[in-house]
Design a protein around this nucleic acid. Sequence first.
DNA 1: TCCTGTTGCTAACGAGCGTTAGCATGTTTA
DNA 2: TAAACATGCTAACGCTCGTTAGCAACAGGA
Lengths: 199, 199
Amino acid sequence: MFIFVRMHSTVKKSRKVQIEEKATTLFREKGYAATSMRDLAQVLGIEAASLYSHIKSKEELLQKICFRMADRFFDAWKEVETEQNSYAAKMQKAAIAYVQVITQNTDASAVFFNEWRHLSEPHLSKFLSMRNDYEGRFIEIIEKGIAAGEFQQVDSKFMMLAILSSLNWTHNWYKPNGKLSPEDVANKLSNLILNGLKK
Amino acid sequence: MFIFVRMHSTVKKSRKVQIEEKATTLFREKGYAATSMRDLAQVLGIEAASLYSHIKSKEELLQKICFRMADRFFDAWKEVETEQNSYAAKMQKAAIAYVQVITQNTDASAVFFNEWRHLSEPHLSKFLSMRNDYEGRFIEIIEKGIAAGEFQQVDSKFMMLAILSSLNWTHNWYKPNGKLSPEDVANKLSNLILNGLKK
DNA sequence: TCCTGTTGCTAACGAGCGTTAGCATGTTTA
DNA sequence: TAAACATGCTAACGCTCGTTAGCAACAGGA
């Protein structure tokens, strides 16, 4: 057995982690409801019943994926709080932090954005309130930016939705091995948001 | 029996149309895979087996919803072709036409954007090629706008994705009876796209 | 009046679902 | 060496799935 975590490539992943990873991929590709435990078992080369030696339920997998992503987004926000110059700069930092989380976890992001509605209570409510919290942080930046005279006078909630939706979409096309780094993507997007398409 | 189509409110809808409408709502709320024919039958007050006097299969419902939306998007594009002034104006017209289709069909839009992957072949391929066609039209406007010196020099495909994603998101929050008209939404969004958030 | 179309039912089909029980094997830890 | 853990199996549970067969009631048009 290897010593725990030496290099990424040589880590022996626990079966549980392997299951979670394959589940993430499958949930992304086929959707949560359309992915069966037998599908999941098959890609791991075991029987469906064997999965239950490692996990509690199918939904537990979804919960792990969704709330782990939520944690990553909140963690990334710490970067935003360090920014003290302008609200434009703060918005840019928020976009960069956000896009970085997405591009570093494209499969989990897709599940996070598309499959959360299959969470049961009370997880669903918790998820929605976290999302609400996060969206509020973007609204706050926009509103303070308007008050400070930096931004156009726009409907802040409306603008938050437009901005986040273009950031959220990133997981659908971003290729981790492509020519664009997460920073490139985030910078291009925040440039579009702040300055628009026109010259 | 009423004469066919006199007023919206007094039209006697065929059972088939009623089924398609309820299916659209359910597919939107629960997702295609998680919606059962028994669910659908229940909201109509009939037995699941009775549905099959009117429709061929569950997937046929999804196909109808998806391709009817696709038709609406292509229809709406005719408006864009009439615009001859500037590429900014053309982009604005495209955004308006697009958002109008979405806001006038929020449930069907949600299904169109989220459930298309459950289409089987050859419908899936047809769907994807139509989407590709449509995206290409946005790319063309962006590229010609850049060539004409109207737009910043940006990656046109990247920009198309960012723009469409913020338009696509509209169905998630738009309230048909709210204070914003489809035109309002479209104008605000195209203003953001063209001019950005900054003053 | 007969025909055709619309609408709906009950009963049932084979298949797949998530999950549990109970057991076996090998590996690590004490 | 013994206990504990990790990993996997077969068999099966109760349930739901989409769908079909066959039949019945009623409407509108010829």
